[in-house]
């Protein structure tokens, strides 16, 4: 499967990125420690994954990432800076067996879709190239060798994602 990078507007349902593999119960404080809470984008980006000791990850070189995580991803704090830092760090989608409720909603609201995996994610290798086909609800790894089924997103979250975020969706609805 090939993937344009970055996806053109007509291909937005095809998301590409390197695998950022994380574990179970990775909470908001680990993804973006509270010390990095800021309205300043530079400071915000500096906190990308800082709680996990991953400060050296390429978060500003244009690399796009698909987070492949364990259970209950993003649990804990509601600080929206966590999702914003992931987005600004190049994360285009998150796949996990389950998500912290607020994280999943905030990610949708800011245009970063979260997908619930149906199959095992254990075979996804760190840093390998992934393609996420949102239309087919499928994560493709290993150059097409491995395909992992994803739950079809709820129509509301899908509509929010298609609009580019919650406020954009509300704007469309109002108009």
């Amino acid at each position: 499967m090939t993937c344009p990078s970055p996806p053109s507007p007509s291909e937005q349902r095809l998301l590409c990125g390197r695998a950022l593999v994380l574990g179970d119960h990775v909470n908001a404080d680990l993804l973006h420690p509270p010390a990095f809470f800021s309205l300043d984008v530079t400071r915000l980006r500096a906190g990308f994954l800082a709680g996990l000791g991953r400060e050296t990850d390429a978060s500003s070189d244009g690399t796009t990432w698909i987070v492949v995580a364990g259970r209950n991803f993003g649990c804990g704090s509601s600080r929206e800076t966590t999702v914003d830092a992931l987005r600004r760090g190049g994360v285009v989608a998150v796949v996990a067996p389950s998500f912290g409720r607020i994280f999943r909603r905030t990610a949708a609201a800011l245009g970063v879709p979260c997908f619930v995996s149906q199959g095992s994610l254990a075979e996804v290798l760190p840093d390998e190239e992934l393609v996420l086909d949102a239309a087919l609800a499928c994560l493709v790894a290993g150059g097409g060798a491995r395909r992992i089924a994803l739950e079809a997103p709820d129509p509301f979250l899908e509509a929010v994602h298609a609009a580019g975020g919650l406020l954009e969706w509300l704007g469309h609805r109002r108009s």
């Binding site: 509601s78 929206e80 909603r105 609201a109 919650l166 509300l170």
Partner: peptide, 25 residues
């Protein structure tokens, strides 16, 4: 706009937290 809003349920309410953008909604 705080995850620990659940606390308010001690009074028999439905209380829940959201991120900023959902609260703007």
């Amino acid at each position: 706009a705080d995850s620990h809003t659940t606390m308010v349920g001690a009074l028999g309410c439905f209380a829940t937290g959201f991120g900023t953008t959902d609260i703007l909604g």
